[in-house]
Design a protein around this nucleic acid. Sequence first.
DNA 1: GTCTATACCCGGATAGAC
DNA 2: GTCTATCCGGGTATAGAC
Lengths: 220, 220
Amino acid sequence: MASAGKGGRYHHGDLRAALIDTAIELIGERGVRGFSLAEASRRLGVAASAPYAHFADRDQLLAAVTARAWEHLAAELQPAIDALQAPAERLAALAHGYVRFAATNPALVKVLYEVGLDKGSYPEIEAAEKPVAGAVLACVRALTGGSDQQADDLATAVEATARGFALLLLDGDFGTDAHAVERAAEQAARATAALIEGRHLLAPAQPGDPHGTGSASGRP
Amino acid sequence: MASAGKGGRYHHGDLRAALIDTAIELIGERGVRGFSLAEASRRLGVAASAPYAHFADRDQLLAAVTARAWEHLAAELQPAIDALQAPAERLAALAHGYVRFAATNPALVKVLYEVGLDKGSYPEIEAAEKPVAGAVLACVRALTGGSDQQADDLATAVEATARGFALLLLDGDFGTDAHAVERAAEQAARATAALIEGRHLLAPAQPGDPHGTGSASGRP
DNA sequence: GTCTATACCCGGATAGAC
DNA sequence: GTCTATCCGGGTATAGAC
C-alpha cells in the first residue's frame, strides 16, 4: 500500500491517498466503527484537522475507501475472468479468488461489508462494484440455460458459500499456518463444484423430478 | 425478551437482565463497537453508573450477552435436533433453522460474531456454544462414514453456506418482503442438500476417482 | 495545505450520599 | 442498588494564522 511506512510523514506528500491507505489499515485493525480521522491523522503525523482539506467529512473518506476496495477485488478476480475455461471452472476459480482476496486483504473485506454507506448517495461505490457482479452472472447464466430463476439461485448459493468460507478463514477456522489460505480457497472452489453438480436440488421438486421429496430441508 | 418495553423503567426491577436485553437491542442497531453502557443506561432510565452494580465492566456484560446468544441459537435448533430423520435431512434442517434464527434475531448474530471476547477468559461463552457444534458434528459423521477428514470438510462447507445465506439475507439480497426469510432458509437447506449430493467433489481427486481433473477450481 | 487552538459532545469509570 | 457529581480521555468539526 503506497509508502505508508510507520515512520513516514506526509506533510507535503499525497495526503489524500495516504489517508485512504491508512483508513484501510485502521479499519482492518479496529473495524469501521473503531476507525477515526483523529487516529489516522496521528499515524500520518499530521494535525487532526488536516484531513478536512481533502474530505468534507468522515463519510466522504469512507466512500472513497469503499470504492477502492471494490477496485482491488475486481483486480484480484481479473485473471479468473480472463482465463479461457468452461463456466463451471471459471465460477470455481472466482470463488477461489474471492477467498484468497479475503485472506490477503482482510481489511478490504471489512470495508466492503461494514461501511454500509447508501450506494445511492455515493455513486463512486455503485460504479466500482459492478464488474464483479457481472462476471458471476455471466457464468451462472451459461450454466443454467434459459431460466433466470435457476441462474439466480445458483449465483446466490455460490456467493453465500464463497463469503462463508472467507468468513470462516478470517475467524481462524482453517488454522493459522501458511497453507490455511490455500486450503480454504481450494475448499471453496470444491464446494462451488459440488453446488454446481447438485444444482438441480436448488429448485423446488417438480412433479416429474426424480429427486427429493418436495422440501429439501426435511425440517420438522 | 423480558419486558424491555420502550417506556419501561427499571429503577427497582431486574436491572441485570434488562441490561442484557438492551445491550442486544443496541448491538443490533449499532454493532458491538457502537454499543455503550451509557446509551443502555439512558434507554433504561437509570444513571450511567448503575450498570457497575451488576457488571465489573463493559466486557463482563458483553460476555453475558454472548452466552445468552448461543443459548438462544441452541434453543432455535432444538426441534431439528430432536426430530426423527436421516442425517442428510437433519443437516439441511439445521441450516434452515440457522438462517431463520439469523433473520429473527439479527442482533444475536452480530453478538455471536462481533463481540470477539477470548473464550478462554470467559468460560460461560465456551460452555454455551458447545451444543450447537455437537449437533452438526453428529450429522456429518453419520454421512461420511469413517473419515474424519471428509466429515470435517462437509461440516465446514455446510457451515460456510449457512452463514453465507444468513449474511446475504441480512444484507437484503433476498428482498424485504414477508417471505424473504423463508426463501432464504429454504435455499440454504437446498444448498446443503446439493453439497451433500456433490460431497465426493470436496476431497482432492483420487487416482481411481472418475470425477474432476485434479483441481476443482480450474483456476488459471 | 497544513498548523494551532478551540468548542462541543460522548463514553468509561470511580467516590460518596441516600 | 441506585443516585449525583466528577475526572479523564477521545472524537468531530470549525476558525484563523502561516
